[in-house]
């Protein structure tokens, strides 16, 4: 469904007229495919280029090289109406739920905005659909009248998810969507996402630095480090055996589930 082919990307640096600063490379020759109904975890440390790759796939940032093929169409080479059509199948949920919504709009307006843009619904149908969406993500219909500051982080992230699924998209990019929530909320949102994936046959690109979260929801994982794809597989088990230093670092940083399994620090020996 989604094919990422040889993507390389650089960020241009502002140069002085006497001294040219070379652009900073962020992604180097990344290729992978994502099938329908699959959740692909994109792991890496901060600054590895995870979010940049996510933005490129969403069509927010034109890559310096390479192609993004969504159902066979190159996202950056199609004409505007086609792109408009493709965009409805690509949605996103960001990490910071508060800055992802307009604080002046009510929850119902936030969720209804994509419907206004893409679907011609009567006001009754519109209301009906928003109500249905709110209920799907575990909120009450009355919550539609509240504004973002009246919600907790977990509830607001549910609203972001409701907005993302409003148009029945095919792919949702989850860019650190659960990282800022507390554990209980994280697990609730993850199980909601897993359920929605089943009922809507969604695909996810789950961008995260937390292996524990990735393992609870992903079917496949990839690891990128300094713009390079260093690991890609569908079985978590073999990730443990991968000997790439970046992968090992991530694995070694998994915190224990129980005090008896503590990581031994070198100053203790």
């Amino acid at each position: 469904m989604l094919e990422v082919a040889n993507i390389s990307h650089q960020y241009a640096n502002r140069s002085h007229w006497l001294r040219r600063i070379p652009p900073t490379p962020v992604l180097n020759n990344i290729s992978f495919t994502l099938e329908k109904g699959c959740c692909l975890g994109l792991l890496g440390m901060s600054g590895a280029g995870k979010s940049t790759l996510g933005n490129i796939i969403l069509g927010l940032e034109k890559p310096t090289q390479g192609q993004i093929l969504f159902e066979g169409q190159d996202l950056y080479r199609v004409n505007t109406p086609t792109r408009h059509r493709i965009r409805r199948d690509l949605q996103v949920v960001f990490q910071d739920c508060y800055s992802a919504v307009n604080p002046l709009m009510t929850a119902a307006q936030i969720i209804g905005e994509p419907l206004d843009n893409y679907e011609k619904l009567t006001s009754v149908q519109h209301k009906q659909r928003v109500k249905q969406l709110l209920e799907q993500v575990g909120l009450r219909a009355e919550d539609g009248n509240k504004r973002p500051h009246q919600f907790s982080g977990g509830q607001l992230q549910r609203i972001n998810i409701a907005r993302a699924i409003a148009l029945n998209p095919k792919l949702i990019v989850l860019d650190e969507s659960v990282s800022s929530l507390d554990m209980v909320n994280q697990m609730q949102i993850l199980s909601l996402l897993a359920e929605l994936k089943k009922t809507h046959q969604l695909s996810y690109l789950f961008v995260t630095h937390d292996i524990r979260a990735a393992m609870t929801i992903c079917d496949r994982v990839m690891v990128i480090d300094q713009g390079e794809l260093v690991y890609q597989d569908d079985m978590h088990q073999s990730m443990m055996q991968s000997n790439h230093p970046a992968v090992q670092k991530l694995i070694a940083a998994i915190l224990p589930e129980h005090p008896s399994e503590r990581i031994v620090f070198d100053h203790q020996v």
Partner: peptide, 23 residues
């Protein structure tokens, strides 16, 4: 009890089959 239940436990089974983590 709820807090403890919301730990991602999947990882534990997966880790137990491979070598223990060291620093």
């Amino acid at each position: 009890q709820m807090l403890l239940r919301s730990r991602p436990t999947a990882i534990i089974d997966r880790l137990s089959s491979s070598t223990p983590i060291e620093l």
